[in-house]
Amino acid sequence: MGKLILCISSAGPLHKQVRDEFVESTGGRIVEGYGLSEASPAVSVGNLFGESPIGSIGMPFPGTEWGIWPVDDFSEGPICLGNPEDTKFGIENSGEICITGPQVMRGYLDIPDETADTLKKYNGKIWLLTGDIGFMNEDGTVEIRDRKKQLIKCKGYSVFPKEVEELLMKHPDITEAAVAGLPHEEFGEIVKAWVAIREDCDLSPQSIKEWAKNNMAPYKCPYSISIMGDLPKISY
């Protein structure tokens, strides 16, 4: 595949291990882009010609603006819009990514209530609440943490599945990981992990749990782990 120069990844988080193996196998570069059906065809893309850090979805296309809003209350106003006077950058100022631009839809057909929940007015512009949680860096780029609907609420803590997946994949014998929340009477939700491991190792769910206790915060540690041959893939 020596002629492959550049690819753009979207529709889900690009894990570092996947990117590194892709680059090693193909010799091409891969950067993350961002878009959604409500703002077709795209909103942003990472640096096509220079360094594009994992997790970064780059800068918005010309004519498009974005900002970070509180997850539960748009009316509180933006956390960060990337203006010169803004100071709330970085992961500690995470919130819902909202965008405005010519590609934003006018609304959902015949679903006025959902339209009203998804499109909000601020400073004379219509903003789309994307349902994605992320934060803005000082250079104006945005990094996605996870989907708002996939956020796990465990013992009062907010757990991002993508973050736990990336932590699990730092284990030298784990090749793939998927994480989701499952209902629990006492904790609200628990962290459930499905992992694929290397063929020549003898990892058990318990040994992975012990490793996790030493490599991530206690509330992020998977409560339940299933080991699988390969994780199911969905093609669109």
Rank of each mutant, 00 (worst) to 15 (best):
116 A>W: 04
61 F>K: 07
132 D>L: 07
119 L>H: 10
135 F>I: 06
46 G>V: 01
65 E>T: 10
47 N>E: 11
137 N>L: 13
73 D>V: 12
48 L>K: 08
106 R>V: 10
131 G>Y: 03
89 F>A: 03
76 E>A: 13
94 S>D: 14
115 T>K: 04
56 S>H: 03
88 K>Y: 08
85 E>T: 11
58 G>N: 09
92 E>G: 06
72 D>V: 11
61 F>H: 07
109 L>P: 08
98 C>F: 06
65 E>G: 05
45 V>C: 10
47 N>T: 00
50 G>I: 05
119 L>D: 09
67 G>I: 03
112 P>T: 03
128 L>N: 09
94 S>E: 13
109 L>W: 14
135 F>Y: 15
53 P>G: 06
111 I>H: 06
53 P>E: 01
51 E>M: 06
80 C>T: 14
50 G>R: 13
88 K>L: 14
62 P>K: 05
69 W>F: 15
103 Q>F: 13
106 R>Q: 13
60 P>S: 02
139 D>Y: 08
101 G>C: 08
79 I>G: 11
89 F>C: 09
133 I>S: 03
56 S>M: 05
140 G>F: 03
83 N>S: 15
108 Y>H: 09
143 E>A: 12
53 P>T: 02
53 P>A: 04
69 W>G: 04
120 K>R: 14
76 E>W: 00
115 T>M: 04
78 P>W: 07
93 N>K: 04
81 L>F: 05
120 K>Y: 11
74 F>Y: 00
138 E>M: 11
79 I>K: 02
78 P>S: 08
124 G>D: 07
128 L>F: 10
73 D>T: 13
96 E>F: 08
113 D>L: 15
74 F>S: 09
107 G>S: 02
131 G>D: 05
72 D>F: 14
74 F>L: 02
56 S>T: 10
90 G>W: 03
94 S>V: 08
57 I>C: 07
52 S>W: 03
127 W>Y: 03
86 D>T: 02
136 M>K: 06
106 R>Y: 12
133 I>R: 02
110 D>V: 14
119 L>R: 09
54 I>L: 09
122 Y>L: 14
94 S>P: 01
124 G>K: 08
118 T>C: 13
142 V>E: 01
86 D>Q: 09
60 P>Q: 05
115 T>F: 02
69 W>I: 00
93 N>W: 01
61 F>Q: 01
47 N>M: 02
104 V>H: 01
77 G>S: 12
93 N>F: 10
128 L>T: 05
117 D>F: 11
58 G>R: 08
49 F>S: 12
121 K>N: 13
67 G>P: 03
119 L>C: 00
51 E>L: 12
74 F>A: 04
74 F>C: 05
64 T>W: 11
67 G>S: 10
108 Y>K: 12
134 G>L: 00
129 L>H: 07
61 F>M: 07
76 E>M: 13
116 A>S: 14
61 F>V: 08
128 L>H: 02
48 L>H: 05
115 T>G: 02
137 N>H: 13
